[in-house]
Simulated scan of single mutants.
Amino acid sequence: MSYVNPSSLVSTEWLSKHASGPDVRIVDASWYMPATKRDPRAEYDEEHIPGAVFFDINDISDTDNSLPHMVPSPEKFSSRMRKLGLGDGNRIVIYDGSGLLSAARAWWMLRLFGHHDVAILDGGLPKWKAEGRPVDDVPVMPAERHFTSRINNFMLREKDQISRNLTTGREQVLDARSPGRFDGTEAEPREGLRSGHIPSSFNLPYNKMFNSTDGTLLPADRLKTLFTETGLDLKQPVITSCGSGISACILAFGLHLLGHNRVSVYDGSWTEWASDETTPVDTRNSHAD
Score class of each variant (00 low, 15 high):
Val4Asn: 11
Asn5Ile: 06
His18Val: 14
Ser20Thr: 14
Asp23His: 14
Asp23Pro: 09
Arg25Lys: 15
Ser30Ala: 10
Lys37Phe: 06
Lys37His: 08
Arg38Asp: 14
Tyr44Asn: 02
Asp45Ala: 07
Glu47Leu: 10
Gly51Pro: 08
Val53Met: 08
Val53Gly: 05
Phe54Lys: 06
Phe54Gln: 05
Asp59Pro: 06
Ile60Ser: 05
Leu67Met: 13
Pro68Lys: 13
Val71Ser: 10
Glu75Ala: 14
Glu75Gln: 13
Ser78Asn: 04
Arg80Ser: 15
Arg80Gly: 10
Arg80Ala: 15
Arg82Glu: 14
Lys83Leu: 12
Leu84Trp: 07
Gly87His: 14
Gly87Thr: 15
Ile92Ala: 03
Gly97Pro: 03
Leu101Met: 15
Arg105Pro: 12
Trp107Gly: 11
Met109His: 05
Leu110Ala: 07
Leu110Arg: 07
Phe113Tyr: 13
His115Gly: 09
Ala119Ile: 10
Ile120Lys: 09
Asp122Cys: 13
Asp122Phe: 10
Gly123Gln: 08
Gly123Arg: 08
Leu125Ser: 08
Glu131Asp: 12
Glu131Ser: 10
Gly132Ser: 03
Val135Phe: 12
Ala143Pro: 05
Ala143Asn: 07
Ala143Val: 08
Arg145Phe: 05
His146Ile: 15
Arg150Trp: 07
Asn152Arg: 02
Asn153Asp: 09
Met155Ile: 03
Leu156Asn: 04
Arg157Thr: 01
Glu158Tyr: 06
Ile162Ser: 03
Ser163Lys: 13
Glu171His: 05
Gly180Ile: 13
Gly180Trp: 14
Gly180Phe: 13
Glu186Ala: 10
Ala187Ile: 07
Glu188Asn: 06
Arg190Glu: 15
Arg194Lys: 14
Ile198Met: 04
Asn203Lys: 02
Lys208Phe: 15
Asn211Trp: 06
Asn211Val: 08
Gly215Asp: 08
Leu223Gly: 04
Leu226Trp: 01
Leu226Thr: 10
Thr230Arg: 02
Thr230Glu: 02
Gly231Phe: 00
Leu232Lys: 01
Asp233Val: 00
Leu234Tyr: 00
Pro237His: 01
Ser241Cys: 04
Cys242Gly: 05
Ala248Arg: 02
Cys249Gln: 06
Leu251Gln: 04
Ala252Gln: 09
Gly254Tyr: 06
Leu258Gln: 03
Leu258Gly: 00
Leu258Arg: 00
His260Lys: 02
His260Tyr: 01
Asn261Ala: 15
Val263Tyr: 01
Val263Pro: 00
Tyr266Cys: 04
Asp267Ala: 07
Ser269Cys: 03
Trp270Thr: 00
Trp270Pro: 14
Trp270Ala: 03
Thr271Leu: 11
Trp273Val: 03
Ser275Asp: 11
Asp276Cys: 07
Asp276Pro: 13
Glu277Phe: 13
Thr278Asn: 09
Val281Thr: 03
Ala288Phe: 12
